[in-house]
């Protein structure tokens, strides 16, 4: 049966780590996403059927939180804060420029070559550094359009 791209042993280990506890569904999904960079469909079905919770419920949790993604993410992940402070400090311009650079649109957040995923987040809690971005888990504050583009050039180099 195992034609799936997902290695169920890996997920089984994650489930065991959380003692197969259905109430730990969010940390379980976080760990699975860390492993696969997204939540593969078969992984969610395996989790649901192993924990005896309806697949619709796991799907509901996975689609409710914007942190989770059901599509594979890019090799690099850039999060641009669009909370009130960052928004006022023109984070919108950065988002627009990045989307243009990597040919992205409303719901299309990952570039075709899988190089990068551009995400907007609501508030990173670092309003004093507005506008803020997080590039591959590294926080960069007081951003300008030029600074962001320089970071992208370095990334692509």
């Amino acid at each position: 049966m195992s034609e799936s791209v997902v290695d169920f042993d890996v997920i089984a280990k994650i489930l065991q780590k959380h003692k197969n506890d259905p109430s730990k569904i969010i940390p379980i999904l976080q760990d699975v996403q860390k492993e696969f960079r997204y939540l593969p469909k078969d992984a969610l079905l395996y989790i649901a059927t192993t924990l005896n919770i309806p697949p619709s419920k796991v799907y509901g949790v996975a689609t409710f939180f914007s942190h989770f993604t059901l599509e594979p993410k890019g090799k690099n992940i850039i999060k641009i804060c669009d909370g009130t402070a960052c928004h006022v400090k023109k984070s919108g311009d950065i988002i627009k420029a990045l989307k243009k650079r990597f040919l992205l649109k409303d719901k299309k957040v990952t570039s075709d070559d899988g190089f990068i995923t551009v995400e907007t987040v609501s508030c990173l809690g670092a309003c004093g550094l507005a506008p803020v971005i997080v590039l591959n888990d590294e926080v960069h504050g007081d951003m300008t359009l030029d600074k962001v583009m320089k970071l992208m050039d370095d990334l692509e180099a």
Binding site: M1, E3, S4, L45
Partner: peptide
């Protein structure tokens, strides 16, 4: 059984 139905048997 659901594992069989959804093709997620190990």
């Amino acid at each position: 059984n659901l594992k069989k139905k959804y093709g997620v048997e190990k």
